[in-house]
Nucleic acid binder design. Structure first.
Lengths: 99, 99
DNA sequence: TATTATTGTTTATTTTCTAAACTAAACTAT
DNA sequence: ATAGTTTAGTTTAGAAAATAAACAATAATA
């Protein structure tokens, strides 16, 4: 039995929800993600930036204030990391069936 | 698409590893868990106490200092919570196949 | 019996998370 | 037109959590 470490960028509830959404969604904007994840603007803003800095998503921002629009899209590295995180977790859950 | 919240007690790397181990192991002592999870004593001690306080594991402590022995065992509530956490996460990962 | 090794806890620090406060702009009604 | 309101998003300050270093207690051993 062994436990691989979890990617600390992904092992956060909101960031994981964002990534799960983007993995199936092509893209999603700030407002949509806010509703989907039921998060506050502040928290969402911070976590989007963190995912962006990690290179897991690409963010395009336009305008400022009310007219602004922020669209997120998952990157190849992000997809890879998300799947790896999933695989790692799965291994935690199937210890009973492993040797 | 919807994202149920994750149990905050379980959504921590070390606590999750401990629970995953105990879910298949009947019981495990401090030293064994320390090796298995590759954690420091301090961190392990704190997280075991946290799981104990949540009622997810039962801990029996004997002696003090070097002679001491600490054994952990998962509770029914702990098993239930662990499986529920697992189910919730799974739902994040299979959004593509859900309606 | 003095030293060292082992088991675990306490504590202090750092990191991380989160929400409240804020900025900026676009509507809305007067 | 402009005062007030709503919307989009960021900053930042405080809380919470995680972690490791320091410690205490005892047992082994030299």
């Amino acid at each position: 039995m062994e436990f691989k470490d979890l990617d600390p960028i992904l092992h956060n509830e909101l960031r994981l929800k964002i990534m799960a959404a983007l993995e199936t969604l092509a893209d999603a904007d700030f407002v949509y993600l806010k509703g989907l994840t039921n998060s506050t603007s502040g928290n969402l803003s911070v976590q989007i930036t963190k995912l962006e800095e990690a290179g897991y998503i690409k963010v395009s921002r336009s305008g400022e204030g009310r007219g602004s629009h922020t669209v997120c899209r998952i990157t190849t590295a992000g997809t890879r990391a998300f799947r790896e995180y999933q695989r790692t977790l799965m291994s935690y859950f199937s210890q009973g069936s492993q040797k």
